Simulated assay, not measured.
Amino acid sequence: DNVNTHVGARMRRLIETRPWLTVFRLPTYAPELNPVESVWSHLKRGLGNLAPCTLADLAQVIRSRLKQMQYRPALLDAFLAHTGLTTDLRST
């Protein structure tokens, strides 16, 4: 997204010190390439009829549902597949 903290000198140094890390620069606004957008979309669909009493209640529900997603690798794989991106570095 080209936020200064994402492309600045400090971030470049952080990336350079991690040889196992591969970074791909994406266009400034490309939600279709960001699997997190699918995660939030999926999460928000399940919150439509929820009426939490407090912000803390809402935060707890969100944490719980994100934790549930964590144990569904096929769902997480689908979010990545939806972008058309791959984690297989040999195909890049």
Score class of each variant (00 low, 15 high):
17 T>F: 04
71 Y>N: 12
56 A>L: 08
52 P>G: 08
65 R>M: 03
30 A>W: 03
66 L>W: 00
34 N>D: 08
20 W>D: 00
47 L>V: 10
77 D>S: 13
18 R>Y: 00
53 C>G: 15
63 R>W: 05
45 R>P: 04
30 A>P: 06
77 D>K: 13
63 R>L: 08
56 A>K: 13
55 L>T: 14
76 L>T: 08
62 I>L: 10
10 R>V: 14
58 L>E: 11
44 K>G: 03
35 P>N: 09
15 I>A: 02
75 L>K: 04
24 F>L: 07
18 R>E: 02
16 E>Y: 02
36 V>D: 14
9 A>G: 02
64 S>V: 00
22 T>V: 06
47 L>T: 07
72 R>K: 12
28 T>D: 04
13 R>H: 11
24 F>S: 03
61 V>C: 08
56 A>E: 15
14 L>G: 07
35 P>V: 11
30 A>E: 05
70 Q>G: 04
71 Y>G: 10
55 L>W: 10
40 W>M: 04
64 S>T: 09
47 L>P: 06
52 P>Y: 08
39 V>F: 11
57 D>C: 08
44 K>P: 00
46 G>R: 11
51 A>T: 14
48 G>Q: 11
24 F>Y: 11
58 L>V: 03
71 Y>V: 04
40 W>Y: 06
77 D>L: 07
58 L>S: 02
41 S>R: 12
49 N>Y: 01
32 E>D: 14
8 G>R: 07
22 T>M: 03
29 Y>N: 12
46 G>L: 07
43 L>T: 05
73 P>T: 05
50 L>I: 12
41 S>I: 01
24 F>E: 09
39 V>I: 14
57 D>A: 15
16 E>K: 12
55 L>K: 13
26 L>P: 03
49 N>Q: 10
29 Y>H: 15
22 T>Y: 02
68 Q>D: 11
40 W>K: 08
72 R>S: 07
60 Q>A: 15
13 R>D: 13
32 E>N: 12
70 Q>H: 13
12 R>H: 09
33 L>C: 02
18 R>F: 00
65 R>D: 03
63 R>Y: 05
72 R>I: 01
32 E>C: 06
25 R>E: 10
75 L>V: 01
70 Q>N: 11
76 L>W: 01
52 P>T: 06
7 V>L: 03
28 T>G: 07
52 P>L: 06
44 K>W: 07
12 R>V: 04
21 L>K: 01
40 W>R: 06
50 L>N: 01
61 V>E: 13
47 L>G: 06
50 L>M: 10
48 G>R: 11
20 W>E: 05
69 M>R: 03
60 Q>M: 10
8 G>W: 13
70 Q>W: 11
73 P>Q: 12
63 R>N: 10
46 G>E: 04
36 V>F: 04
61 V>R: 11
67 K>I: 04
49 N>E: 10
63 R>V: 02
55 L>C: 10
64 S>P: 00
77 D>E: 13
51 A>S: 13
15 I>T: 07
46 G>Y: 01
47 L>Q: 06
16 E>P: 01
45 R>Q: 14
11 M>Q: 15
64 S>W: 06
41 S>Q: 14
37 E>N: 09
74 A>Q: 14
47 L>M: 14
40 W>C: 02
42 H>R: 05
23 V>Q: 03
26 L>F: 12
78 A>P: 04
31 P>H: 05
13 R>E: 14
13 R>S: 14
32 E>I: 03
47 L>D: 07
74 A>V: 09
46 G>H: 10
59 A>D: 13
